[in-house]
């Protein structure tokens, strides 16, 4: 199944199910992004989506035996954190005026 998922042969088939679950969670979190109702709701949903993609990248790195993907995942996590912080300060600053 995992070969079908990523198009490459691997020797760690046990990681396919977690990856599928993460994709399902990604879809659910996206529902919250669309539905809102407030901006902070959308921001936490986006933050969770970013961590889900980080998880997917990490598992992909494990499956392909590529440490570089883990580096990419860490950088993505950093960017997601900074984005959330920026959104928080934006929301707060807008209420101060």
């Amino acid at each position: 199944m995992i070969e079908w998922l990523i198009g490459l042969p691997t020797d760690t088939p046990l990681l396919a199910a977690p990856m599928a679950i993460l994709v399902a969670a990604l879809a659910l979190a996206f529902v919250r992004v669309v539905r809102g109702p407030t901006i902070p709701d959308r921001v936490i949903a986006l933050d969770l989506m970013a961590s889900l993609v980080v998880g997917l990248l990490l598992l992909l790195g494990a499956v392909l035996d590529l440490l570089a993907i883990v580096d990419i995942a860490i950088v993505l996590a950093l960017i997601a954190f900074l984005t959330t912080v920026a959104f928080a300060s934006l929301i707060e600053r807008r209420t101060r005026e």
């Binding site: 199910a17 977690p18 679950i21 993460l22 399902a24 969670a25 919250r32 969770l48 889900l52």
Partner: peptide, 17 residues
């Protein structure tokens, strides 16, 4: 470990909803 982690993240997404 990966299965438990993925299930927890799924629970987080369901909780969000």
């Amino acid at each position: 470990l990966a299965l438990a982690g993925a299930l927890l993240m799924l629970i987080a997404a369901i909780g969000l909803l």
